[in-house]
Amino acid sequence: MPLLTLHNSLVTYLVVGALLFGMGVYGMVTRRTLIGMLIAAELLLAGASINFMAFNRFTAPDPAFGQIFTLFIMAIAAAEAAIGLSIIVAFYRHYKSIDTDDAVQLKG
């Protein structure tokens, strides 16, 4: 029964990663708020991490490399979330809004 042995094929993980990446792109394009875009960015990073881990498991000679890279992605994502959220909070204090349409003061 091929449906139950999907977890042993590289393509399954690549497809799941691609789908998560696509959802992240859709959220990034359509969201109107800064926090929504941050959530979409997390989805993008999760899709990329799944790809790294899948190649790490199936094709890479050294299976520690991909795990270390995924750890670094997690650290960068945590730093990005901390900075992004504090910028959002500061932005909210100024404009009383987190709508991306209000962040246009630098517009010429």
Binding site: L20, I39, L43
Partner: peptide
């Protein structure tokens, strides 16, 4: 679970 969670995260109205 992964895909449904991703759909909710990218398309739901409320944050």
């Amino acid at each position: 679970v992964t895909l449904i969670g991703g759909l909710v995260a990218s398309a739901s109205e409320r944050l």
